[in-house]
Design a binder for these strands. Structure first.
Length: 482
RNA sequence: GGGCAGGUAGCUCAACGGCAGAGCAGGUGCCUUUUAAGCACUUGGUUCAGGGUUCGAAUCCCUGCCUGCCCA
């Protein structure tokens, strides 16, 4: 214990209680207490007189002298327990020593109190773990956002809605896997440490492999490896795991985030849009109980399919009132600024288009909307449209003013792919993944692909406004333990 | 990176230039069906850190740290 902690009376008293348990011959960090019932199951199937065995954390205590009530919380719910001197004899004093936060195992019989609350009359109890620090207030919960993120376990103990959000996240991810596997997709794992980070335009985290003496990068996307698997003969694959981007942190960005990428050989972006539409509807129905969502900016989002498709150029025409791509770059820039799009002085023409789209279309679209046929320059890994090579056969799914998922007809022409990547590399001082280009030359089947940002999807489906509310341990600047 | 807001008891929050407080939690006592249990008494503070202004600073000013929101 540090000097500072010794000064705290609350901590000292807990240590005194610990000593009191030891003095009574009881190990305050007990052993296993197996074969317990789940509280929610016991409550759902409640029978007076039924014997039950429970384990959990003490959340409240009402000590009445020769009897006491407490609430016990396990992973499924919470239930009142009751103990008195008459039933327990000299062991009753053990219960009187309990603190809020202690973890106990109890055995006894179910009954209802005068007021009808389902309760367990304790006949036997064991201390399973002594809590040496006070829990946050059971009534007010834990509101301090910094404490909630830094000590998520406390957030989870005292804030039921936080537990529920993470349970929903878990269900969403499980349902995605189930949905794709039912449709013949195989989950695969590809390198997270890559010699050449590719598949997206983002700054990677770098690291170093000592034995090989080579620099490595945490992946910014699995895309180029998944395509190698298409080349290798896997026809329906997905990877649902972490990507890492060395960028700022915000309400919508965490440096590590979870992404689904799925590829389907011999399909195209249209087919992927249908797949995505049915996947998201399935998730909304199984996890949110319906196809209606709401966010603070878009109070009513209706996911009822089919979802509309609209070409990128048409979106910009409707938002700006002009045939955007018929204008000169100078005219585009002027128009964007007139419409309130803030642009850096050195913004390229394509940046003007991108920012204008983000500000005037994406941010204002409740969706769901599939924006299709983006400019080729924006999407270097997608197939160009046959009729109009200035656009690519892709969609961008927008829901709730946010980009939720892109989908492509994947580019499988190794010569065009090389040109487009070289063009991109020239701009961004990235390295070219020659190994990927080599693989492409052996022939990759035409394929459809999608990427789905899981954290933002969970935000959307659970109505959370910050990515930190859907990631257990969001990145914060480390701090010394107080 | 820029702007704004915030950091006070274990938790939730007051006090806004004049004795640092409340509720809950904690402690002691009473209480064998309570449930935000109750009643009585009661402990608990580096007011984020450092500097400055002032007779006097949680409060005003400066610097730093951390967090949130907005913008880039």
């Amino acid at each position: 214990m540090s000097e500072h902690e010794e000064a705290s009376e609350l901590l000292r008293l807990r240590r005194d209680k610990l000593a009191a348990w030891l003095a009574r011959g009881i190990d305050p960090f007990g052993r296993a207490f197996p074969d317990t019932a789940s509280i929610s199951a016991l409550l759902a199937d409640f029978l007076e007189g039924r014997e039950a065995r429970l384990a959990g954390r003490i959340l409240s205590i009402r000590d009445m002298g020769k009897s006491l009530f407490a609430h016990l919380q396990d992973s499924s719910g919470k239930m009142q327990i009751y103990a008195n001197l008459q039933t327990l004899g000299e062991r009753f004093a053990d219960l009187k020593l309990l603190d809020l936060g202690d973890i106990v195992g109890v055995e006894g019989e179910c009954f209802r109190t005068k007021t009808g609350e389902k309760t367990l009359r304790v006949r036997h109890s064991e201390l399973l773990s002594k809590s040496l620090r006070p829990l946050p207030s059971k009534w007010h919960g834990l509101h301090d956002v910094e404490a909630r993120y830094r000590q998520r376990y406390l957030d989870l103990i005292v804030n039921p809605e936080v537990r529920e959000t993470f349970h929903q996240r878990i269900r969403i991810i499980r349902e995605i896997r189930r949905f794709l596997e039912e449709r013949g997709f195989l989950e695969v794992e590809t390198p997270m440490m890559q010699p050449v980070p590719g598949g997206a335009a983002a700054t990677p985290f770098s690291t170093f492999h000592e034995a090989l003496g080579i620099p490595l990068y945490l992946r910014i996307a699995p895309e180029l490896y998944l395509k190698r698997l298409l080349i290798g003969g896997f026809e329906r694959i997905f990877e649902l795991n972490r990507n890492f981007r060395n960028e700022g942190i915000s309400r919508k960005h965490n440096p590590e985030f979870t992404m689904l990428e799925a590829y389907w050989a011999f399909a195209d972006f249209e087919r992927m849009a249908e797949l995505l539409e049915s996947l998201v509807c399935h998730l909304a129905e199984t996890v949110c109980g319906g196809l209606r969502l709401s966010s603070s900016t878009f109070p009513s989002i209706d996911l009822q399919p089919p979802w509309p498709r609209k070409r990128f150029a048409d979106c910009l025409r409707d938002a700006t009132g002009k045939e955007w791509f018929s204008l000169s770059p100078e005219q585009r820039r002027k128009l964007a600024e007139e419409l309130g799009v803030e642009l850096l002085p050195n913004a390229q023409d394509i940046d003007v288009t991108r920012h204008t789209f983000e500000k005037l279309v994406e941010a204002r679209t409740a969706g769901p909307l599939f924006v299709t046929h983006l400019p080729t320059e924006l999407v270097p890994l997608a197939r160009q449209n046959r009729e109009d090579p200035s656009v690519v056969d892709v969609f961008e799914l927008i829901i709730g003013g946010q980009e939720v998922a892109p989908g492509y007809s994947e580019l499988n022409d190794p010569i065009v792919q090389r040109e487009r990547l070289e063009h991109q590399v020239g701009e961004e001082t990235q390295k070219l993944d020659e190994d990927f280009l080599l693989a492409l030359e052996y022939g990759m089947p035409p394929a459809g692909g999608i990427g789905l940002g899981i954290d933002r999807l969970v935000m959307l489906l659970t109505g959370r406004e910050s990515i930190r509310d859907v990631i257990f341990f969001p990145l914060l600047r480390p701090r010394e333990i107080p």
